[in-house]
Design a protein around this nucleic acid. Structure first.
Length: 243
DNA sequence: GCGACAG
DNA sequence: ATCTTGTCGC
């Protein structure tokens, strides 16, 4: 079956309202907790895929055993696109669908690993922090590209890191998850420490640059999007006659 | 004002 | 994110 997600009541419709919402919520981010230790319990990857042409979005949540990295549970949700892509306001585009997928889970998500940033954000309230505040779950962000803060190049070996600095504050780290491969960008979302977030990022990358959580969620939400685009929501053309 | 800009 | 073919390398 396909679960369909709506957009929460009062969800911002324009950029000014979205920025105001970030300003109103960022004070609720909890930064004095260490979070679950790597290898214990579960870790959950979330990701979203879009078909802006058809105004359709698909989200996926994949729960992994933190020790073995085996899949424990997978859920998806589809809906209409809630917000355009605007740098700094990514959460408003992704979160409604993500909440839909998380609602379907029966397993404990444990630490939620997001695509993007948490505190390493222009207003200190990126996607990972926003999702954490809305759900109460510990969250962290792992972005594939640099965003708001400059940084030095980390050492070439897996595990090397360079701080993302906002003045004197370390708001994240460029972390080398594989030797000789370009780094990823780790930041705290909610209820985890930066050190622990980096440890998790390394525990989740035994083979590839990107965490196993996000790789799994990425594939699942793309599959879900392809499935709905193929007619589940009555959005596509009929097969060609005689083919 | 101009360019850059998570996904 | 998404559009897209081949291609270099382990």
């Amino acid at each position: 079956m396909v679960t369909i997600t709506g957009i929460p009541d009062g969800w911002p419709t324009d950029e000014a309202a979205a920025r105001a919402a970030q300003d109103a919520l960022r004070g609720r981010v909890v930064v004095d907790e260490t979070g679950p230790p790597p290898g214990a319990g579960t870790v959950t990857g979330i990701d979203v895929a879009y078909d802006d042409e058809r105004d359709v979005v698909a989200a996926a949540a994949v729960v992994l055993d933190a020790d073995t990295l085996d899949v424990v549970e997978e859920t998806t949700a589809v809906g209409r696109v809630a917000f355009p892509y605007v740098p700094g306001l990514l959460a408003f585009r992704e979160i409604p669908a993500v909440l839909g997928a998380l609602r379907e889970l029966t397993a404990d998500p444990g630490l939620v690993v997001c695509d993007g940033y948490g505190l390493a954000h222009p207003r200190r309230f990126g996607l990972a922090s926003h999702l954490g505040v809305l759900t109460g779950l510990p969250t962290m962000g792992v972005a594939k590209n640099p965003f708001a803060f400059a940084h030095d190049t980390p050492g070439r070996e897996r595990g090397s890191a360079a701080p993302l600095l906002d003045g004197a504050d370390e708001v994240g780290r460029a972390l080398r998850t594989r030797t000789g491969v370009k780094p990823v960008y780790v930041s705290v979302g909610h209820r985890v420490s930066l050190d622990n977030a980096c440890a998790h990022a390394l525990a989740l990358t035994p083979r590839y640059r990107v965490p196993e959580t996000t790789r799994r969620a990425d594939r699942l939400c793309r599959d879900a999007l392809a499935a709905v685009s193929d007619g589940v929501l009555g959005l596509t053309a009929r097969p060609l006659p005689g083919t």
